[in-house]
Design a protein around this nucleic acid. Structure first.
Length: 835
RNA sequence: GCGAGAGUGGCGGAACUGGCAGACGCGCUGGACUUAGGAUCCAGUGGAGAAAUCCGUAGGGGUUCAACUCCCCUCUCUCGCACCA
């Protein structure tokens, strides 16, 4: 009995060899075409989960495939190591975040190695090491110099449970993205990065992201949220001050019946006398459920018609968007409509649907506001024709928008503006386990950046984790108290740390200089050819959950580094693959649902090749993967079958000549052998196409299964037959190598080849040998299949037609009808139309 | 509400540019080997029907010699955004 497939023997053996030979170490070599393949780096939470396995299996196939195709492949891995869980572990178990994190990294690195992933570990990056985060600080100081980093007081999203500020992107359904607590608004001084300076560029270059899923590009566009509109001045009666409002619908200006200020708007404080009432409204600011308003008792003047309109403070008006004040047109905006109904304010229609005006001469288009008012049950928000709008009546709303905007601009009471939803990125976090923001507060000099020579500002170890709130850094006097770099006087350090998304916004650039590069200083400060050789990332792979946050920040950071002269790239990721979730029993795998599958168990039981194979086979990468324990066994069975074929035919395989068989040899082959050879070439072609086209590994693997099925029954009798079998097996292993590298190496060696299969070139196919000798012709009568016929390839349309018409079985269906038409689809079918 | 995507056997999923619907795998059924089988191998497997044959890609209509694929309407599900004026 031959040897049995035992991945526990095979896999460690090859992992050891690969590591010893540094097979996956990447060199900067301009004579080769480069390919930068990157999977999103993990947070070192403790152990990897199936989502990681899937993500890294996908990336590894691509990296290994490209390497076999002759590219110089950069395929690095690292750790997104700062963040809250480490600190929470410190509070709960009294272990220092650093210890916790590094232990996790150590364990998880072992897990990744057990998966046989082809990383160049010499480039490993760990964001919590000073060697890494010093650059966060250096970039921050540069951004400060360029006015891209600034400090301001603002209302921020505050998570009461995490005791920290959250970026808008981290608030989901008014809840903390991490712990699901309800987020509250709080006023705080915060550091911001001016991502809005790049809003236009980030939006415009979305069109260059042709290698990204459309869905993600759209989400980026929507997040940036550009809109064209008008800023108009409503002069306050008595004071003469202006309320600037922003609107995208200047065509409705004649329908304004009141103006609303956001509660935090500076004018709210000044115009409202009753501070208690104002406080009540402010408390309701940002609450979605009900609209609330407070009449200020004051009026302002509509710049288009001089009308007096009342001023309200309203909880639904956002301070952060536009000017923090709006004009309200209840007839044409549902929110204003609801508000007007509630507070008994006038609803005046100034736009009517186009059909109401057609051919009616004077009629409905001129209907008075009062008559229309009764008809409106909801706001009419669509396009139409202006009525009761002075000189602008009769214009189509689109034209009126332009005309009225121009009119306001000419009169000096308004201007055309562009607005973005995107807001500056608040990066201050009141937490310990992050990059210290390199800033010092001095009573005399104010805010002073830490000078370059004093970087990095090291995160101190002597702190206590109480979980009481407030940063633990406040507990470290040696950190807190510092001499002012400017005047030498007593000063205090910033205790906030950076959002961890800063860390992940440029790690892909750090990978481009090899790990302990002695020239790192120069490279990251003023750029270098290897950065520009490797960047951008050719293929980025990760979950959709980062469609906005991480990807947008990375696009921003890449541009900042470009403008600092460090790299020449603007877009960091040429192609993006967003892999689907891993589902089990109808829900995403998660600890709370108790439906997780532990990768360690899986590897122990079936091996990493099987684990990888199944996760690649069960679904195309961009779709959700439905986990099936039985499916895993199927994958294992397949690999065992390949193994068994090799050991059953081992002597024959070893003895046979290697290499591809030429067309000339084919004549000596039996039909079975010809068929297997043909299948081999077809499979090389199909697997290559499936990988190249959208990385459809599932169909590539199914093609390999077909080839193996055909090999199973093949028993070579002669030398030429053994050669065919060897050719089939060698190619199967080569094609399998990116998917299941260990077994591919082992069997490659077993049939008498030198290691390493990973270093071999990707096989090519011969179209002549891949071509079928015969095809099955489908014969249809009136579109229904009535017969099938094996015919040789290369017949003319007429010959095919005659064969079809001559087919006995088919002729029964022709009946008495007249043949009206015969359609011949080359190599496929004939359709006989009978009437 | 707005935006995007998806509906194919018992299940995961295939199907080029409109050309045999269901590749491949799982499961199931039968058989072989076996003390045994939850191992392995072989055969079968969309539904109905004894068969000829008919019906089948969420539902309804349309274009076409031919529709999972293109067009129109309806339903369901998933995801994203959500007072952005």
């Amino acid at each position: 009995m031959e040897e049995r497939y035992d991945p526990r023997k095979v896999e460690p053996k090859w992992q050891k060899f690969w590591a010893e030979k540094k097979l996956y170490k990447t060199e900067y070599d301009t004579s080769l075409k480069k390919f930068y393949c990157l999977e999103m780096f993990p947070y070192p939470s403790g152990r990897i989960h199936m989502g990681h396995v899937r993500n890294y299996a996908i990336g590894d196939v691509i990296a290994r495939y490209k390497r076999m195709r002759g590219f110089s492949v950069l395929h690095p891995m690292g750790w997104d190591a700062f963040g809250l869980p480490a600190e929470n572990a410190a509070i709960k178990h009294g272990v220092h975040p650093s210890k916790w994190t590094y232990e996790n990294i150590n364990y998880m690195k072992g897990q990744l190695n057990k998966l046989g992933l082809s990383y160049d570990w010499d480039r490993e990056v760990t964001t919590c090491s000073p060697e890494y985060y010093r650059w966060n600080q250096w970039f921050f100081v540069k951004m400060l110099e360029k006015g891209l980093a600034y400090r301001k007081s603002s209302y921020v999203n505050w998570c009461p449970s995490c005791q920290t500020v959250l970026a808008n992107e981290q608030v989901i359904d008014s809840k903390c993205w991490r712990c699901d607590s309800i987020v509250v608004q709080k006023e705080l001084f915060q550091w911001f990065l001016r991502i809005t300076r790049y809003a236009e560029e980030l939006l415009a270059s979305c069109d260059e992201l042709s290698g990204w899923p459309e869905k993600v590009v759209l989400m980026q566009k929507n997040w940036i949220g550009k809109s064209f509109g008008v800023e108009a001045d409503f002069r306050i009666e008595d004071t003469g001050e202006n309320i600037k409002i922003f609107t995208t619908r200047p065509d409705t200006l004649f329908g304004v019946s009141f103006v609303c200020l956001s509660p935090p708007h500076p004018l709210s404080e000044r115009l409202v006398e009753d501070k208690d009432e104002l406080a009540k409204i402010t408390a309701q600011y940002g609450k979605v459920d009900e609209k609330m308003g407070l009449y200020t008792g004051r009026y302002c003047i509509n710049p288009v018609n001089g009308e007096r309109v009342p001023i309200y403070v309203a909880n639904f008006v956002l301070m952060e968007y536009g000017t923090g004040a709006i004009m309200s047109v209840p007839a044409h905006d549902q929110r204003d409509f609801d508000f007007a109904k509630k507070y008994g304010l006038p609803i005046r229609q100034v736009i009517v649907p186009e059909e109401n005006t057609a051919g009616a001469g004077h009629g409905p288009a001129q209907a008075s506001g009062r008559a229309q008012e009764a008809l409106l049950q909801t706001a009419y928000e669509d396009e139409g024709v202006l009525v009761d709008s002075g000189n602008f009546s009769g214009l189509a709303s689109a034209d009126a928008r332009e005309a009225i905007a121009q009119y306001l601009q000419d009169k000096g009471v308004g201007r055309k503006v562009v607005n973005y939803k995107l807001r500056d990125w608040g990066i201050s976090r009141q937490r310990y386990w992050g990059t210290p923001i390199p800033v010092i507060y001095c009573d005399r000099c104010g805010i002073v950046a830490v000078p370059e020579k004093d970087l990095p500002v090291i995160l101190p170890e002597d702190v206590r984790f109480t979980g009481k709130g407030g940063s633990p850094l406040l507990e470290s006097p040696s950190f807190l108290n510092v001499a002012c770099p400017s005047c030498g006087g007593k000063a205090r350090r910033e205790t906030d740390t950076m959002d961890t998304f800063v860390d992940s916004s440029w790690y892909f650039i750090r990978y481009c200089c090899a790990g302990k590069d002695p020239d790192i200083e120069t490279k990251l400060k003023s750029g270098s050819p290897d950065l520009d050789y490797w960047m951008p990332v050719d293929q980025y792979i990760g979950g959709v959950e980062h469609a906005v946050l991480h990807l947008l920040y990375s696009r921003f950071f890449t541009r900042v580094l470009r403008d600092l002269g460090i790299i020449g790239t603007s877009e960091p990721f040429t192609n993006l693959l967003t892999q689907g979730m891993v589902i089990k029993d109808g829900a995403k795998m998660s600890k709370s649902k108790g439906n997780v599958v532990d990768p360690d168990y899986l590897i122990e039981r079936y091996g990493s090749d099987t684990s990888r194979l199944f996760s690649l086979f069960a679904a195309p990468p961009e779709k959700d993967l439905d986990w099936s324990d039985k499916g895993v066994e199927g994958a294992y069975r397949f690999l065992s079958r390949v193994w068994n074929i090799v050991f059953k035919n081992r002597e024959a395989l070893k003895g046979a000549a290697s290499g591809l068989i030429s067309t000339a040899d084919v004549s000596g082959l039996q039909a079975e052998g010809r068929s297997l050879l043909r299948k081999t070439h077809q499979t090389i072609k199909k697997v290559t196409a499936d990988i190249e086209k959208e990385y459809h590994f599932n169909t590539a693997i199914s093609a390999l299964m077909e080839l193996v099925n055909e090999m199973t029954g093949f028993e070579p009798q002669e030398e030429i037959g053994r050669q065919v079998l060897r050719t089939a097996m060698e190619n199967t292993l080569l094609l399998l190598a990116p998917f299941t590298p260990h077994i591919a190496e082992e069997l490659w060696e077993a049939i008498g080849n030198e290691p390493f299969i990973s270093d071999r070139g990707w096989p090519s196919w011969d179209d002549g040998l891949a071509k079928d000798e015969e095809i099955e012709l489908v014969i249809q009568v009136n579109g229904k299949v009535r017969g099938k016929l094996m015919i040789p390839v290369g017949l003319t349309d007429d010959e095919i037609k005659n064969l079809a018409l001559g087919d006995r079985k088919t002729s029964d269906f022709l009946g008495q009808g007249v043949i009206r038409k015969v359609i011949v689809v080359k190599g496929r079918l004939v359709n006989i139309v009978v009437g």
